[in-house]
């Protein structure tokens, strides 16, 4: 029975599934990040100051939180166009709730509304069978309209003073938003790499039929994915509102595209179940450094948008090229 075969299948030493390994792609990203840092420090010495880096971290934290959720959604085979507008909606509603019912209930309501909207998106996609593009486009429009109706298009500013701590506070000189974002990254990475839930998300993204035939409750996993993402969008709305010191219907505008961009630049492919939270972390860092660096050398944000567009297309092209080669 236990006779030794010299061609016995071998296991990698680490025991970590190969798709989660820190692969060449991740290594390449690290090099890009180092190169960007060197170039920008050389162009403007202010880049490499503690104040500036803390600033970058604070600004990027919100993108990081949204990008985590977006990445999990993309790994499951979908993508979310509504995130930005939902941030605006949650910003105004939870701020009004906070003014009436206090800080804690206001904060909880932001995450609760996010969960509910996410679950709704998930049900539209998993149960009603709408394509993610259509479902979240509908949500984009509806959320935007609702946010404007509820706020009358005006900013809301009477939140409790302590609320400002979430966006502006620091612990041991580290900005609170960055710490929140870091925790979200760690938690999501743990979920995706270490748990059965994460494994099932990858399986659904890779081949939905195979997941279904394996007895995985695909609908339930998808609704969970979208709910989780929704909760994170709620959290992002909270941090962004606190940072802006006022709620507004258009607060998260563009966040849907930025989060998709960060995910794709990080190397997570749309619709194939390939990539990871770690990839997205690197993608977010690249986006942050690039934006900040270009700001410091006075490149207008219009040119920055063009640059991001070019980078997205290049990132996907390189990814495809590598796939064809292997």
């Amino acid at each position: 029975m236990s006779q030794k075969t010299d061609t016995a299948p071998d296991a990698s030493r680490t025991g970590i599934a190969s798709q989660f390994r820190f692969d060449l792609n991740g290594l390449g990203m690290v090099f890009i990040i180092i190169a960007l840092c060197i170039v920008f420090s050389w162009l403007n010495p202010n880049f490499y100051s503690g104040t500036n880096l803390r600033n970058v971290a604070r600004q990027t934290a919100i993108l990081g939180i949204v990008a985590c959720g977006q990445t999990i959604v993309i790994l499951s085979g979908g993508f979310d166009l509504s995130a930005g507008m939902v941030i605006g909606l949650i910003s105004v509603t939870s701020s009004l709730i906070m003014i009436d019912h206090g800080l804690v209930i206001g904060c909880l309501s932001a995450i609760g509304i996010g969960l509910a909207i996410g679950a709704f998106n998930g049900i539209m996609i998993a149960k009603a069978g709408l394509p993610a593009f259509i479902a979240t486009l509908a949500m984009y429009s509806a959320a935007r309209g609702l946010a404007l109706i509820i706020s009358g298009g005006l900013p809301i500013t009477d939140m409790p003073f302590e609320f400002g701590w979430i966006g502006a506070g620091q612990i041991l000189t580290l900005p609170v938003p960055a710490l929140i974002s870091l925790m979200v990254f760690l938690l999501c990475s743990f979920l995706m790499v270490k748990t059965r839930f994460g494994r099932h998300v990858y399986a659904i993204g890779g081949n939905q039929d195979s997941a279904l035939f394996s007895g995985i409750n695909v609908d339930r996993v998808k609704i969970l994915v979208w709910s989780l993402h929704g909760g994170l969008v709620g959290l992002a709305a909270l941090v962004l509102t606190s940072r802006a010191v006022s709620a507004h219907a258009t607060l998260g505008e563009g966040m849907e595209l930025e989060s998709i961009a960060a995910t794709v630049i990080g190397g997570t492919a749309l619709g194939r179940g390939r990539g990871s939270i770690l990839n997205t972390f690197l993608g977010v860092v690249v986006m942050a450094i690039l934006t900040n660096g270009l700001n410091l050398i006075n490149v207008s944000s219009y040119y920055q948008m063009v640059a991001i567009g070019i980078i997205i297309a290049t990132a996907v092209y390189v990814d495809q090229f590598k796939r064809v080669k292997s």
């Binding site: 299948p9 599934a17 798709q19 399986a203 890779g206 081949n207 039929d209 195979s210 394996s214 390939r274």
Partner: peptide, 24 residues
């Protein structure tokens, strides 16, 4: 158990993950 005509494996997962898919 069924082996489907198109195999129904998850191409983006490794052998271990596929063998234990749904029964991790």
């Amino acid at each position: 158990e069924m082996i489907y005509q198109n195999l129904a494996l998850a191409p983006n997962l490794d052998v271990v993950a596929n063998v234990f898919l749904g029964r991790e």
